[in-house]
């Protein structure tokens, strides 16, 4: 058991506990905030492994922008203080959701556990190496992803604008 092992285990535990609380809590905004804890745990794991850039970008994009957006949407719609009883679901649906989650976890564990080695190793990966990989080897998937996101953005704009035009013409 090295210090790295301990740090990795602590971050991993933080991510797992944060994730579990995010899906089980009855408070909507608390769920978003537990998601932040889970993401910080994952970022911590990446830091321990030496992937500094990936960890920081994870925090910058997911915590700094996406969770802020989620919180914004929650506050705009309905985010009561205290447990949200409007969206209560029957017990059998909770059981089904739990079973689906457990099955996914089991599948992932079955696939990943045989690959796990012994002690946690730290590999210093320079930012240049990450950049060369993304913009060299993986440039086509990267570009395809960005085109996909752009298409989604334009489609969202078209949906929101198009309906308004219809309403105007209908009047």
């Amino acid at each position: 058991m090295t210090g790295l092992d301990l740090a990795f285990a602590a971050c991993g535990a933080l991510a797992v506990v944060g994730g579990l609380l995010a899906v089980t809590t009855r408070h909507v905004v608390h769920a978003a905030l537990w998601l932040v804890v889970a993401l910080l745990g994952v970022a911590g794991c990446l830091l321990v492994l030496g992937h500094e850039l990936v960890a920081l970008v994870l925090v910058l994009v997911y915590v700094g922008a996406i969770v802020v957006l989620v919180l914004f949407a929650l506050m705009l719609t309905r985010a009561p203080i205290g447990p949200d009883l409007v969206h209560d679901v029957p017990w059998w649906r909770r059981m089904l959701a739990g079973a689906a989650g457990a099955a996914t976890t089991a599948l992932l564990l079955a696939a990943l556990l045989p690959l796990a080695g012994g002690a946690v190793e730290r590999r210093e990966i320079s930012n240049q190496a990450v950049a060369t990989e993304i913009f060299g080897t993986w440039v086509w998937p990267f570009e395809a992803l960005s085109v996909l996101l752009l298409a989604a953005l334009i489609a969202a704009l078209a949906v929101s604008r198009g309906r308004r035009a219809e309403e105007v013409s209908g009047e």
């Binding site: 500094e52 850039l53 920081l56 910058l60 915590v63 802020v68 320079s126």
Partner: peptide
């Protein structure tokens, strides 16, 4: 750290959560 610019940006963006 090698990525200190990203570190500063990431941590200031987390600070915004406090206001929310």
């Amino acid at each position: 750290v090698p990525g200190s610019a990203v570190l500063v940006l990431a941590s200031t963006s987390v600070g915004a959560l406090g206001t929310l």
